[in-house]
């Protein structure tokens, strides 16, 4: 994965975001296995549609962000998620209303 420029060391919120994603995976989806940026959501973690839905809604709650459909395209790995979350946090887009 090519790192998003936002995620470069020094300016990077990626570590706390990765922790947050791990947290959500652990507490809401009972994922016990180790998770890093390369971990594939559907391949390795075998998240089905219900689990993916839970993940995305809980990430929105956790980070107080709102994913737009475009944001979700092409997300395959935990690292992809972290990059999108970092961007949304920087944009300070308001949390989802509905």
């Amino acid at each position: 994965m090519t790192p998003d420029p936002i995620l470069e060391p020094g300016r990077s919120p990626s570590q706390p975001i990765l922790e947050g994603v791990r947290n959500v995976l652990r507490s809401h989806l009972a994922i016990a296995q180790p998770v890093d940026a390369e971990t594939d959501l559907t391949g390795e973690l075998q998240l089905d549609s219900l689990a993916l839905l839970t993940l995305i809604v809980e990430l929105e709650n956790h980070f107080r962000i709102c994913f737009e459909p475009d944001d979700e395209q092409g997300i395959q790995t935990v690292g992809d998620l972290v990059a999108v979350i970092a961007r949304l946090l920087l944009e300070e887009r308001p949390a989802c209303a509905s």
């Binding site: 959501l41 549609s49 993916l52 839905l53 993940l55 995305i56 994913f67 979700e72 395209q73 997300i75």
Partner: peptide, 8 residues
């Protein structure tokens, strides 16, 4: 509608 985080 599309599934969230699903494959388009």
């Amino acid at each position: 509608p599309p599934v969230r985080l699903g494959r388009l």
